[in-house]
Simulated scan of single mutants.
Amino acid sequence: MRIVLIAGAVSLVVALFGTPLYIRWLVHRGYGQFVRDDGPTTHHVKRGTPTMGGAVIILASLLAYAVAHLVLWRPPTASGLLVLFLMTGLGVVGFLDDFLKISRKQSLGLRPKAKLAGQGLVGIAFAVLALQFPSADGVFPASTNISFLRDTRFDLAFAGTVGGTLLFVVWALVITSAVSNGVNLTDGLDGLATGATTMVLGAYVLIGTFQSNQNCATLTEIERRCYEVRDPRDLAVVAAAVMGACFGFLWWNASPAKIFMGDTGSLALGGALAGLAILSRTQVLLVVLGGLFVLITLSVILQVGSFKLTGRRVFRMAPLQHHFELAGWGEVTIVIRFWIIAGLFVALGLGLFYAEWVVGE
C-alpha cells in the first residue's frame, strides 16, 4: 500500500506547485484559450486563460509513478506502463489539437478526421500491446473476454485466435474513443471534468487494491471469486498517481480557473480511465462509474440526432452542462451538482463491485 500512497502524494505535490509555474510560462508565451462565439456568452470572459494544462497532469503522473517505484525499488509492470502509454499518447493528440488552436488563434484545432485518426492509432497500439507480455503464471494485461466486474464467459476469441484479436482491438478502440471523447465533452466548465475524473480514479485505486488483495494465482473451487488480473496493485498505483495530479491541478482549475486542461488533459484522462477499465477487467462497469460522462455524451447524441431528423433541438445547447447555463444556473452550481451526480454513480459502481464479491461468498 505504501507505493500507492507515495505515487498519490508525489503527483499531488508536483501538480500543486508545478501548475502555477506552468501558468506563468504559458502567459509569457501568450498561450491562451480561444472561446467559441456561438457558446454561452458568460464564457467570453475566459478568453485568454492559459490552456494545455493537461501537460502538468501527465508529467506529474509519470514522475510520481517513476519515483514511487524507485523509492521502494520495485520494477514497473507491463500493465502500469500500458495505461501510462495510452494516457500519454492521447495527451499528445490533444496537445497537437490545443497547439493548433493557439497558433491559428481560433477555437478549431485538428480536423475531426485527423483527431479521430490520432486517437485510433494510439488505441490500436495499446490494444495490440495489451495482448502481449504474459506474467509468470500466464496472465496477460488484457483479456479477449467482455468484462463487467470480472471476465465473463463471452470471449471474443470465439472467432479464432486472429479473429479474436481483431475483435478485441475493435472493442478496445471503441472503449478508448468513447471514454476519451466523453471526458472531452464534459470539459468546459471550471473544474467539472477534473473533479468528476478524480472520483472515478479514486474508485480504481480501491478496485486495484481490492483485486490485488484477493487475486488468486491458482485455480481453486472459489475461482469465480478470484480476479485473474495482471498487476492489479500497479494499476492502483497508476490510478493514485493520476488522481493526485488531478487534485493538484484542480486547486488552480476550480472556478474561477487560472488554467484549463484543454484537450491535452481531457483526452489523456479519458485514456487513463479506458486503460484502467480494460486492464482491470471492468470494461462495462466503467459505464456506471463514469455515468456522468455517459449522460453528457448522450445529450450530444440526442441533440445532433434530433436536429438532423426533425430540425428541432432537445436542449437549449449541448453538451448538457451548457443547457443549464442557458437556463440561468450559475457555473459553480452546475459544477457542484454534476459532481454530486458523478459521486453517486461512483458509489453505485463500487457498490456493485463489492456486492458481487460478497454475494459470491
Rank of each mutant, 00 (worst) to 15 (best):
S280C: 14
K115V: 13
V358H: 10
A64G: 05
L110P: 00
L206N: 03
A327Y: 14
T198G: 15
Q211N: 10
P134D: 06
L100T: 04
E356W: 14
T19L: 07
L110T: 06
S266N: 07
G164M: 05
L96I: 15
V67H: 12
F293Q: 00
F133N: 00
A125I: 03
T282R: 12
A193W: 01
C216F: 15
L149E: 00
V170A: 11
A172Q: 08
L295F: 13
A318L: 12
V67F: 05
V10C: 04
S280P: 12
D190F: 12
V67N: 10
Y31H: 12
G202M: 01
A257Q: 09
L63C: 03
L350S: 07
V284H: 15
V4W: 07
G109R: 11
I336C: 02
E356D: 10
S143W: 09
R111W: 11
F247E: 03
F324S: 08
A117E: 10
G118H: 01
T194G: 00
G30P: 04
S180W: 09
F315S: 06
V179K: 15
M243R: 00
F307S: 06
E223R: 06
G53F: 09
A78I: 08
D190P: 12
S11T: 05
L348I: 15
E361K: 15
G109L: 05
G182D: 00
V56W: 10
V139K: 00
F140W: 11
V183G: 09
L5E: 10
D234F: 15
V139W: 05
L21N: 05
L26V: 04
F293P: 00
V83G: 08
R225E: 06
C226T: 05
D97E: 04
L295E: 07
N184K: 02
S79P: 00
A257H: 08
G351A: 13
N213A: 15
T165I: 15
G54L: 01
L276Q: 14
Q132T: 09
F307Y: 14
A272D: 03
G138L: 04
H43Q: 13
Q303M: 13
R74F: 11
L72C: 08
W357T: 14
M199L: 06
